[in-house]
Structure formats: structure tokens, C-alpha cells
């Protein structure tokens, strides 16, 4: 049985079809890259998996259990955590306070504030925000806020982590740090990860497999090398006559 199975997933917003008949599956511990131009439906796919948006048709199964159509907090309780492309920190709360919400209410929810605090200090240490823990989240730079998104998602103790452009807006060295962090997290926490990334080099290096979306449809999925040389992908990305 696959860790995550997506079957014939379709999502319409009014007359617009954001995703059409998407099917794929992934194994435990796998890093799956999502690739596609703007508007291809990558973020929508994450929103569907995380429960932020209900699918118009199709199913999502996490270890055999249906998770589609459930509210986001229930999906999180089953072990799915996401970050937001446009970061959504709890701006008025401290960095530590932000992460504690994840620890208090996520899959690994603890009833004790003190316990949550200890857990979150470790996570902040891991993502490199420990020195800024008492700052209001609004005071963080964009790079800091992206880390905060990851920290808050981790605090819920997910099994499946959905990362939406966590590298965007970071400079080269910050992006490298973030890549190392993602790899390390996968290993130490046995995480399965779906990641959306526009920096192709990063996506190719990080992902075990890549799923390519175009105009809401799945073009293909496969290993990074296969994807990079696939004529359909090249056509979708560079236009039909790119080879000319």
C-alpha cells in the first residue's frame, strides 16, 4: 500500500478547472517534487491534500485512509502539515508562540504549555531561529518567516510535509542552508515530503521523483533525469518549437 495515494483528483473553482483528473502515489520517506509553470495547479494540489480546499471529485488516501473532504485541522491531526507560499505567520505572537500553536494542536498535540515549549525550543534550534524566539513574528525577515512556516509545520509532528516554495526569495547561501535542512529533517524525522519549487536545480537535486503539472493536468511523473529529458516537459516549459 502506498503511503499517499491521489486518485482522479479534480478541483473546479466556478467554471475554472484548476486541477483535472490527477492521480499519483508516493512512498514513505520519499521526496516528491512538484513542477509546473505559474497557474499549473501546484499550490491547489497542496491545498487539496491539506484540506484547505475540498476536491470537486476524486480521493486522497493517506496510508489507506480517506483524508479528502475533511477539515484542515483533522487532516493535520492525521499527520499532514503544510507551509504557505505567501507566508502566514501569527504576526502578533512571538516566534516561539507561533511554533507552540503547532505543538499544542497538531498531530502530536500536548496539553501542557511547558511541554510544548520544550519541544518548540528544540525545533527552533533545528531551523536556526532559536536566537529570535522572543521577537514578534512580524519582525522576522522573509527568510526568517519561511523558516517559521517550516518550524510551525514541524511542531505538529507530521508524517507528510507539504512545502510550498520555501526557497523563493532566499539568496543562494540561505537557499543552500534550507536544502540541507529539508534533507536533514527527512532523515531525522522519517518524513515524506512534497515540495513545490521554482528553482529547478534545487528541485532536481532534492527530489526522488518529480511530478509535472501543466494547465491543471498531469504531464508525467518520474525520476529527475527522466523528467528533465522528457520532450513533453520541454515542450510545456519552453514552448512547442524550443528545439528549433
Amino acid at each position: 500500500m502506498s503511503f499517499l495515494r491521489v486518485e482522479n483528483l479534480t478541483c473546479r473553482f466556478g467554471g475554472i478547472v484548476a486541477l483535472q483528473d490527477i492521480s499519483f502515489s508516493m512512498e514513505k520517506g520519499e521526496i516528491l517534487g512538484l513542477m509546473g509553470a505559474n497557474g499549473a495547479g501546484k499550490t491547489t494540489l497542496l491545498s487539496l491534500i491539506a484540506g484547505n480546499v475540498a476536491p470537486s471529485a476524486g480521493h486522497i488516501l493517506l496510508e489507506g485512509e480517506r483524508i479528502d473532504g475533511r477539515s484542515p485541522h483533522r487532516v493535520n491531526g492525521l499527520g499532514v502539515a503544510r507551509t504557505f507560499q505567501i507566508v502566514r505567520p501569527f504576526a502578533g505572537m512571538t516566534v516561539l508562540g507561533n511554533v507552540m500553536i503547532g505543538a499544542l494542536y497538531g498531530r502530536g498535540r500536548t496539553m501542557s504549555l511547558r511541554h510544548a515549549r520544550t519541544q518548540c525550543l528544540e525545533i527552533l534550534d533545528e531551523v536556526g531561529l532559536a536566537d529570535r524566539r522572543d521577537l514578534p513574528a512580524a519582525a522576522l525577515t522573509l527568510a526568517g518567516r519561511k523558516r517559521l512556516e517550516v518550524a510551525r509545520a514541524l511542531a505538529t509532528q507530521p508524517r507528510l510535509l507539504l512545502l510550498d516554495e520555501v526557497l523563493a526569495g532566499l539568496n543562494a547561501s540561505e537557499a543552500n542552508d534550507a536544502l540541507d535542512l529539508i534533507r536533514r529533517l527527512r532523515e531525522t524525522r522519517m518524513l515524506s515530503i512534497i515540495i513545490i519549487e521554482h528553482v529547478m536545480k534545487a528541485l532536481m537535486r532534492l527530489s526522488h521523483r518529480i511530478l509535472v503539472l501543466h494547465d491543471g493536468k498531469k504531464i508525467m511523473d518520474g525520476e529527475p533525469a527522466e523528467v528533465a529529458s522528457d520532450p513533453r516537459v520541454i515542450a510545456a516549459y519552453l514552448g512547442e518549437h524550443a528545439h528549433v
Binding site: N52, N76, R82, F90, I101, G102, Y105, R152, T156
Partner: peptide
């Protein structure tokens, strides 16, 4: 939205 996404 962010709150519900982290389990609240």
C-alpha cells in the same frame, strides 16, 4: 486559516 492548518 493558518490556525486550522496547524491543527487548531
Amino acid at each position: 486559516t493558518a490556525a486550522s492548518t496547524v491543527g487548531v
